[in-house]
């Protein structure tokens, strides 16, 4: 340990850290939840089935763009034609994946939990060298704002899906099922996650020096700034929410549960 906390001139203590609290719990939970999500979403993306039933579309498959999609789920048509024979989820998941992968909050989480850089504050990291986000591929983190805007389009589509879920199986409007509430909650969580995003905060007004010259943008910046401290919360809720939403649609589609209609 001749670098870092063991560098010449620093207090010779001889251990990586002296923390006595359970600092490893938070990164451990992050690893478990993120790996579980990755495993579940990968399996579902490749399953290529049970993603549409009675006007309920799984968020993993929306918008459904392949020819194999049920017509009711293909709200934007099937621009990819017949040649695409794999799961339609694979056509779109790069956008929400990229949004979360480049998210400032998730970066903190996975740098800590997976890369141990550092695992926790004042716990020495195991790496001999560190260059941060100054080289490829980590320079790609700077594309976050583009994924944010792509994410907004997805939010609009998933909100449309939630509205469509106010139809009953016969296609009549004015009905609401548990599935409607599930899709609605999913859309709300995703909107909260997107609107509390740091890039969103910058885009609406954060880049300005003179708020007084841009009163409307200042108001928008102030609104996003009130959501921004809750971004980590929305990140987890929307991540788990989207998986549970998909699970619900799959469970209804496979007949494991019945989608109960409230009215």
């Amino acid at each position: 340990m001749e670098n870092g906390v063991g560098a010449p001139g620093r207090a010779k203590i001889g251990v990586r850290h002296l923390r006595t609290d359970k600092w490893w719990i938070s990164p451990l939970i992050s690893v478990v939840v993120l790996l579980s999500f990755i495993a579940y979403s990968t399996w579902r993306a490749f399953e290529n089935d049970f993603y549409y039933v009675d006007h309920l579309v799984s968020p993993f498959y929306s918008p459904c763009l392949a020819t194999s999609c049920p017509p009711e789920a293909a709200i934007l048509g099937t621009p990819f034609g017949d040649w695409w024979t794999l799961s339609p989820a694979l056509l779109i998941l790069v956008f929400p994946l990229g949004f979360r992968l480049t998210c400032y909050y998730y970066r903190k989480t996975y740098y800590r939990a997976f890369w141990m850089s550092p695992s926790a504050c004042a716990v020495a990291e195991p790496h001999k060298k560190y260059t941060g986000e100054t080289r490829q591929p980590l320079l790609l983190q700077n594309s976050h704002r583009y994924f944010f805007f792509a994410g907004l389009i997805f939010n609009i589509i998933l909100t449309y899906d939630a509205i469509i879920a106010f139809k009953n199986p016969a296609g009549e409007w004015g009905h609401m099922s548990v599935g409607t509430l599930v899709l609605l909650a999913n859309a709300i969580f995703l909107w909260m996650y997107s609107l509390s995003c740091h890039s969103c905060r910058h885009a609406v007004g954060g880049r300005l020096k003179h708020f007084s010259a841009h009163p409307f943008r200042y108001k928008m910046w102030t609104f996003v700034s009130t959501l921004n401290p809750h971004h980590p919360k929305f990140a987890w809720v929307s991540l788990i929410g989207v998986a549970l939403c998909d699970l619900y649609v799959r469970s209804v589609a496979t007949g494991q549960i019945t989608n109960f209609y409230i009215f």
Partner: peptide, 29 residues
């Protein structure tokens, strides 16, 4: 660019300055 926004600076600030959210990330943007 070397900062990987792991927020330890914010965690230890006795003045509760939101260093990462209000300074570092806006500067990165």
């Amino acid at each position: 660019g070397m900062c990987n926004i792991t927020k330890c600076c914010t965690d230890v600030c006795p003045e509760h300055i939101k260093i990462t959210d209000n300074a570092i990330i806006p500067m990165k943007e």
